[in-house]
């Protein structure tokens, strides 16, 4: 009999503690942050497939689609601490998939914040081949031979070239390569240096057109966007994250499609210019 009572007692004490701890965790008040992503050109909403824009180099251009990743998104609290969204996982945006352009994240601690920061693209700890096997993210894969992982961004479009023809461009950013410019064309790629990110690409040889690759460049960069906002308990705070397309081609480098041509995945200098310009591409605001 007494045994039973003790059991009963133990049970209720334990239950009490469990309830207590539950209470405690739900007491940390949290809210939801929603990112509404907008693509803009020269201050107004980007109109796809229309040859109506002119970049800093004077190229008339249109955009057909924009697909991109940010990762390690951090919300900065006024007290100096940070809250990392989605455990730092990459987040994907796509002009062709409306659902990606408005994404909510819950369990954000309530309080006042001073801004956000993120990595544009994926850094070396995250940019691993086959980490995404499902579309649409998997369609962003960056070939292992070129460094592996994923495109940070595909910004596709067309521009009016010097000959007056409308030519396609693929402004694709990702891991860059260092080519051995003085090696004879017949030289083979050093297998150890090539494609460290994926085991299955040992043994590659370069295609005849490209020079041997001796190393890779991580082109991702960090963006900080100051903005005062508050997360209130159980409420949604939306933030407008804006990509200003013209900025990709503007500062500090004037990016001329006639100079770089339609494809840049194997032109580190072009990707470097693009990524340098990327620091000024984003703005963050509270919707009115």
């Amino acid at each position: 009999m007494s045994k039973l009572i003790i059991r009963y007692l133990a049970f209720s004490v334990i239950t009490f503690f469990i309830l207590l701890s539950c209470n405690k965790s739900s007491q940390t008040p949290s809210g939801i942050v929603r990112f509404d992503v907008q693509h803009k050109a020269n201050g107004s909403t980007l109109e796809l497939n229309k040859l109506i824009y002119t970049n800093a180099a004077g190229n008339q251009y249109m955009v057909t689609e924009v697909q991109w990743f940010v990762s390690k998104v951090k919300l900065q609290k006024s007290d100096g601490s940070t809250f990392v969204l989605k455990n730092g996982e990459p987040i994907y945006f796509d002009t062709g998939i409306p659902a990606t352009l408005s994404q909510s994240f819950d369990k954000v601690p309530a309080g006042s914040y001073t801004g956000i920061s993120f990595i544009f693209g994926l850094d070396e700890t995250q940019n691993k081949s086959l980490r995404f096997t499902n579309p649409p993210e998997s369609f962003m894969f960056w070939p292992d031979y070129l460094g592996g992982g994923y495109h940070y961004m595909k910004l596709n479009g067309k521009w009016l070239n010097v000959n007056g023809l409308i030519e396609p461009f693929n402004f694709h950013l990702g891991i860059g390569q260092i080519y051995d410019t003085i090696a004879p064309k017949s030289a083979w790629v050093n297998m150890n240096d090539c494609c460290k990110s994926a085991r299955h690409c040992e043994g590659y040889q370069p295609p005849q057109k490209t020079m041997p690759i001796t190393g890779f460049v991580q082109n991702y960069f960090e963006v900080s966007l100051p903005l005062a906002f508050t997360i209130e308990e159980n409420k949604t705070q939306s933030l407008n994250l804006q990509m200003n397309i013209e900025q990709w081609f503007k500062e500090p480098h004037i990016y001329d499609h006639n100079h770089w041509g339609g494809s840049i995945m194997q032109q580190q200098a072009a990707m470097k210019a693009g990524c340098d310009n990327g620091h000024n591409v984003f703005t963050l605001s509270i919707p009115r």
């Binding site: 086959l130 998997s138 894969f141 070939p143 292992d144 494809s263 194997q266």
Partner: peptide, 24 residues
Amino acid sequence: LRGFVLFTTEEGADCFHCHGGGGN
């Protein structure tokens, strides 16, 4: 292997954006 590299490089044959490759 050379063919695979061609398939997945823009300055090669540039097939991968539409037809996949190692990551797809």
